[in-house]
């Protein structure tokens, strides 16, 4: 397992370098320029100077090499400096956002907590809803419960979050003035009432995302359960005279969880990726909102860095999913 992991990690390095180049070029070659954000009242000469000050007039490969250096040397060095008080950076420029002129990693650092709390909670809630629904739907395939579960999953799949989000706002904030529509990121949880306040402001984005997550995961759970439900060993378990509880929850569920756990692990990078639409709708200043804001403003360093971090997370969580698979399924051994 260890050699397998090491080999995969080594292989990931050229993969990621290649991905970083592709991302950089794609983002760069995409139409649009940071110029489009500057109002027309700013004369062309001034615009030109502003672009020069951003370094946006440099050729793409110069910027790519600089970005590589910043990403792989300056930023880690800066982190080490922060921990140990060393001075490895030596005044070198970090990756700066064109939009806010602040270091991209500072922005990401500010946003990760919100994304993890809101999107992470939504993911957990989604899983918590999806598991029992998926299990019971499979156990009682084609029953009324299963049909309703299928319907809800279809709705969760097909209704876009901007729609369900707006609907929730109208119901829970406008008609019934229970929940706030804008997430207050400055709220510090210090006591019971601020904790309740935090729960209230998380409620809507979490519900919206949990519905979408639960839809997908419950379907995976259901189909995995169904696949195992028809296996001989389940018949064996019944023939042994096990109770239905044991048959379903021990024999079937434990085997069905293997693929579902890997699907869940593969979905974790999307937690870090945030939820672009939902975050934007509820004013949660997470990574997703940062990404869409940066795309709108043609803030290339931000977009490139975020996209690359997602790529890294996806590669890493793919590896984690593979390792989990090996741990959960005794039939699989990596050499």
């Amino acid at each position: 397992m260890l050699t397998f992991t090491l080999r995969r990690l080594l292989l990931a390095i050229p993969t990621l370098l290649f991905i970083s180049l592709i991302i950089f070029l794609l983002v760069d070659l995409a139409p649009g320029s940071p110029m489009s954000e500057i109002p027309l009242t700013v004369p062309p000469e001034v615009r030109k100077k502003m672009i020069e000050a951003l370094g946006a007039d440099q050729p793409v490969f110069v910027r790519y090499i600089l970005w590589l250096r910043q990403f792989f040397w300056v930023e880690p060095a800066n982190l080490i400096d922060g921990w140990f008080g060393t001075n490895l950076v030596g005044g070198e420029q970090r990756i700066l956002s064109w939009q806010s002129r602040s270091p991209v990693f500072t922005v990401i650092g500010q946003r990760i907590p919100q994304t993890l709390t809101v999107i992470g909670t939504a993911y957990l809630v989604g899983i918590a809803i999806a598991m029992p629904i998926g299990i019971y739907s499979a156990y009682r395939q084609y029953s009324v419960f299963d049909q309703i579960g299928t319907l809800i999953a279809m709705i969760g799949f097909s209704v876009p979050t901007f729609f369900s989000g707006t609907l929730f706002i109208i119901v829970f904030a406008v008609w019934l003035p229970w929940l706030p529509t804008k997430y207050d990121t400055t709220l510090a949880v210090t006591d019971w009432s601020s904790f309740l306040q935090q729960l209230r402001q998380m409620a809507m984005p979490v519900m919206v995302l949990a519905l979408a997550n639960a839809a997908a995961i419950s379907r995976y759970m259901r189909s995995s359960m169904l696949e195992n439900m028809g296996q001989d060993y389940v018949r064996t378990a019944r023939a042994k005279g096990m109770t239905e509880r044991v048959v379903v929850l021990k024999h079937v569920l434990r085997n069905s969880l293997i693929p579902v756990v890997t699907v869940i692990a593969l979905g974790i990078p999307s937690i870090f990726g945030g939820a672009i639409i939902t975050e934007n709708l509820f004013g949660v200043n997470g990574i997703g909102a940062a990404l869409i804001g940066a795309i709108h403003a043609n803030d290339l360093p931000m977009v490139q860095t975020l996209a690359f971090i997602f790529a890294v997370l996806i590669v890493v969580f793919n590896l984690i999913a593979d390792i989990l698979y090996g741990l959960l399924d005794p039939r699989i051994r990596y050499e």
Partner: peptide, 8 residues
């Protein structure tokens, strides 16, 4: 708009 006003 980012192309139209982008000035490329």
């Amino acid at each position: 708009p980012s192309v139209f006003f982008g000035g490329d």
